[in-house]
Design a protein around this nucleic acid. Structure first.
Lengths: 191, 191
DNA sequence: ACCTGCATGTAATTAGTTACATGATTTT
DNA sequence: AAAATCATGTAACTAATTACATGCAGGT
């Protein structure tokens, strides 16, 4: 799904500035989508040019005016048309898991840190979902469904990591310097 | 993580052709990574030029020779160096979940199909993990960890979808034509 | 005084995806 | 006889990421 359609979707809930949208993406939708300023601003400008969005400009901080975008009827229609054509791809792109897959080649201490960091991210995303639920208690069924699914998935991941991390680390320690190509630090303290 | 590092990682397990690698990516690693021919072939060629990979060419089908790549010692070293610098980003990029989020604006029948399709994909990925486990029963701890985590996550997702799909569909049906901007087909049979 | 949050946008870089071109062997 | 699998590679296109440029208000 391109950033344009994403912006239409996000704005179909309520009006927002480009900045707001980015926060929403990284806070509320973070567990299944990510997008940055560099994609959002051009998308909003183009959608406004085409009449799918309208905005009210107020003097903002900095030299450029602050623009609050809202979706138009034309925009809502276009959004539905676009959504009809979207294929439901779902892909996970995880350097975290790739690193764990290669855990043999990493220092066990790093593996430990990696898991800690991931657990922190999961906690943040769970907190964001909790906050979102609290602030809009009667959300549309789709939104509630995705929130609940996200919460379940994040919980499961955290559980798994906490339950199995110890056995991973000890298996790694047991295998040190053993068969095939186990981890040997680049600075070579294996001797 | 760029395609080059990814190829080094995959080849650290066993030698393969570019074609093999693509299959491995879309079958074994599909639940957390994806990559196509257009990225793999140039990456392999560059890595071979730099001496991180070596290959044996045999006459293959088609005009170009078949090349079986294996990682060199230099390549293993480079891989570890690169892995040390990799940040453990983990992001889900899901048009599927975005579509469910917007379920209000979709025909309930489509939502149903969407869930069916996703369940099928999950089954395929679970089957791939099962197969991979069967073929290499004594895999390194990292590989087993990631396989188990993947299996757990996929199972949880499938469970959730099966358990909650009915209530989503009925909530959607109940809301038809009701408050705010619920789904109205583009061809407008709402009248 | 300095840092964080709010707020917008452009330009350059980087990387991924898709389409194209070729063709033998095996399965349906 | 057609389709799928095996197998490699290039070129064009599309899109995301990152860096840059600007600057006020409020908190520490």
């Amino acid at each position: 799904m391109d950033t344009e359609t994403l912006c239409l979707c996000a704005l179909s809930f309520e009006p927002a500035t480009g900045y707001d949208l980015k926060l929403r993406f990284e806070r509320v939708y973070a567990h299944f989508y990510a997008t940055g300023f560099g994609s959002i601003y051009p998308a909003l400008a183009k959608l406004a040019r085409e009449g799918l969005l309208e905005f009210t400009a107020t003097p903002g901080p900095g030299p450029k005016p602050r623009k609050r975008y809202s979706i138009t009827d034309k925009g809502r229609h276009a959004m539905r048309e676009r959504l009809e054509a979207v294929e439901p791809v779902h892909r996970v792109h995880s350097d975290f898991l790739m690193l764990l897959l290669m855990a043999d080649h990493l220092a066990p201490a790093r593996v430990d840190t990696l898991i800690d960091q991931r657990l922190e991210q999961i906690e943040e995303q769970l907190a964001a979902i909790g906050k979102a639920r609290a602030s809009s208690s009667d959300a549309p069924p789709g939104v509630e469904f995705v929130r609940d699914l996200g919460q379940t998935m994040l919980h499961t991941a955290a559980d798994f990591l906490q339950t199995h991390r110890a056995s991973l680390i000890s298996a790694l320690a047991a295998g040190e310097g053993a068969p095939s190509s186990r981890h040997e630090s680049i600075s070579g303290e294996t001797a």
